Simulated assay, not measured.
Amino acid sequence: MLTEELLTLAAAAGAAVATAAGTDAWEELRARLGAWFGRGDSRQEEAALEELDGSAAALLEGGTPTGAELERYGAAWRDRVVATLERLDGPDREDAARDLRRLVVEDPAAPEIHGGDQNVRGDIRVHAEQGSLAAALIQGNVHFGPPPPPVRPEG
């Protein structure tokens, strides 16, 4: 059984993969996560990289994914991380947890982890469809700036 902290780290890793797919952050996160899954075994690392690439392609093949698609994708990668951690024991699990913590905290596309809470750096999109409601609870400071000026087409 994994601790709450490890489950939270796994969820943050899954969210980071979903958030980074198709963005400039993807290649770095992909490489770091592939190495994490490989744990020094180049065949396992290559298999993880292929799985990351294949699942990202599937996620993005229909254009911009919906919130539900991103959530399912993140959950699938969370489960993959959990399964990997569960196969490890003792010092190997501790090393993997330390490396995962470093990967999640250092990745700019990843949610920050603070005592079980999830704080997100970057954009947050809240979207509701088909008459449903969506909301975000914000505790703390919110800073707004003016939008960038419009770009006029040259012509």
Results as ranks from 00 to 15, higher is better:
residue 4 E to T: 15
residue 4 E to P: 10
residue 5 E to M: 15
residue 5 E to V: 13
residue 5 E to W: 11
residue 6 L to M: 14
residue 8 T to P: 13
residue 11 A to R: 09
residue 12 A to D: 12
residue 13 A to Y: 01
residue 13 A to R: 07
residue 15 A to D: 06
residue 19 T to W: 04
residue 21 A to T: 05
residue 23 T to N: 01
residue 24 D to I: 04
residue 25 A to V: 05
residue 29 L to C: 11
residue 31 A to S: 15
residue 32 R to L: 11
residue 33 L to E: 02
residue 36 W to C: 04
residue 38 G to D: 04
residue 38 G to K: 04
residue 39 R to T: 07
residue 41 D to M: 10
residue 41 D to L: 14
residue 42 S to Y: 06
residue 43 R to T: 07
residue 44 Q to S: 14
residue 44 Q to V: 03
residue 45 E to S: 06
residue 49 L to P: 01
residue 49 L to H: 12
residue 50 E to F: 12
residue 51 E to N: 13
residue 51 E to Q: 08
residue 51 E to R: 12
residue 53 D to G: 01
residue 53 D to F: 00
residue 54 G to R: 10
residue 56 A to C: 06
residue 56 A to V: 01
residue 57 A to P: 03
residue 58 A to I: 10
residue 59 L to M: 08
residue 60 L to K: 00
residue 60 L to H: 05
residue 64 T to G: 08
residue 66 T to Y: 02
residue 67 G to D: 11
residue 67 G to E: 12
residue 67 G to T: 06
residue 69 E to F: 01
residue 71 E to I: 08
residue 72 R to Y: 01
residue 73 Y to T: 04
residue 74 G to Y: 04
residue 76 A to C: 05
residue 77 W to K: 03
residue 77 W to H: 15
residue 82 V to W: 07
residue 83 A to K: 13
residue 85 L to H: 05
residue 85 L to P: 02
residue 86 E to Q: 11
residue 86 E to C: 09
residue 87 R to F: 09
residue 88 L to S: 02
residue 88 L to R: 05
residue 89 D to M: 01
residue 90 G to S: 13
residue 92 D to F: 04
residue 96 A to H: 01
residue 98 R to P: 01
residue 101 R to I: 06
residue 104 V to Y: 00
residue 106 E to D: 14
residue 106 E to R: 09
residue 106 E to T: 09
residue 107 D to H: 02
residue 108 P to W: 02
residue 108 P to R: 03
residue 110 A to Q: 05
residue 110 A to M: 01
residue 112 E to T: 07
residue 114 H to S: 12
residue 117 D to K: 12
residue 117 D to P: 00
residue 120 V to G: 03
residue 121 R to G: 03
residue 121 R to I: 04
residue 122 G to K: 08
residue 123 D to T: 12
residue 123 D to C: 06
residue 124 I to R: 11
residue 125 R to Y: 06
residue 126 V to E: 00
residue 126 V to N: 05
residue 127 H to T: 12
residue 127 H to D: 13
residue 128 A to D: 14
residue 128 A to C: 11
residue 128 A to F: 08
residue 129 E to Y: 13
residue 129 E to H: 09
residue 130 Q to E: 15
residue 131 G to T: 12
residue 132 S to A: 15
